[in-house]
Design a binder for these strands. Structure first.
Lengths: 126, 126
DNA sequence: CCTTGACTTTGAGTTAACTCAAAGATATAT
DNA sequence: ATATATCTTTGAGTTAACTCAAAGTCAAGG
């Protein structure tokens, strides 16, 4: 009654191969199966997929996701380790964001100069 | 009177191999040389290195930098093309920034839940 | 029943951006 | 003069994260 792999693939724009790959290497837990052994993505499964998609889109390495899932499956004794893992990744993202902003500033400056240059026909300094 | 490749490498934390690679593929223009043919990075050369470092740190593809330099060396007739190129890259960075913020939100939420869980000993919902 | 899609395993291929190595020739600093 | 750094070219190796293909089996919908 859940979604097939194809449906999940289309809904989230993730190739079926990648979904299987994520499951195989442990980015997401084993997906619920039908009696016949076919993947039948339930709400939980989909939440994991969604999460993986979000984290990957921001550039978290697959290794971090794999490690997180591993800890998750080990139970409550890994709260601290999971907390540390997520905190570390947050630091990395914050650094990345800062870098992005720096680069955007530089890009904006250049772009504004080109806008001007295109009016006057020449770059006014540099 | 400028800097040697080693000095630039150390100053910017970019391996010498990468500096030569950037020059070879056209991420930066040919570097000034001594009479003996050894690279002698002047202010301009260094400005290009700095720029490449910044852009790469934000994830701009090398291809974009190569294309930019190619246009740059073609002269004033490419203002518009350069403007377009930079604008496109800016759009990509803005999208990336948005994604980063989304992911940070999700990460912060999770982290706060773990902080709570570590006090109380269990995850309070999910 | 038949077609279409899903399943598995295995292994190779791809892309970006380096990164390293080898070889032999010069150059520079002490 | 000598030790250390640079130079060139060429080509192979690396890493991450997929991506594709082959081969053969199985399941589900009409």
């Amino acid at each position: 009654m859940g979604l097939t792999i194809k449906e999940v693939s289309e809904k989230y724009g993730i190739p079926s191969e990648t979904l299987r790959y994520y499951e195989r290497v442990g980015v997401i837990p084993p997906v619920t199966r039908t009696a016949g052994g076919i993947r039948d993505y339930g709400e939980e499964d989909i939440a994991w997929v969604e999460n993986a998609k979000c984290m990957r889109a921001a550039g978290l390495p697959i290794e971090a996701l794999i490690e997180y899932l591993k800890l998750y499956r080990e139970g409550d004794s890994t709260f601290q380790a999971r907390f540390a893992l997520l905190s570390e990744q947050r630091e990395l993202l914050l650094a990345q964001k800062k870098q992005l902003e720096e680069t955007l500033d530089r890009l904006n400056y250049k772009i504004s100069r080109y806008a001007l240059a295109m009016e006057t026909g020449k770059l006014t300094w540099e």
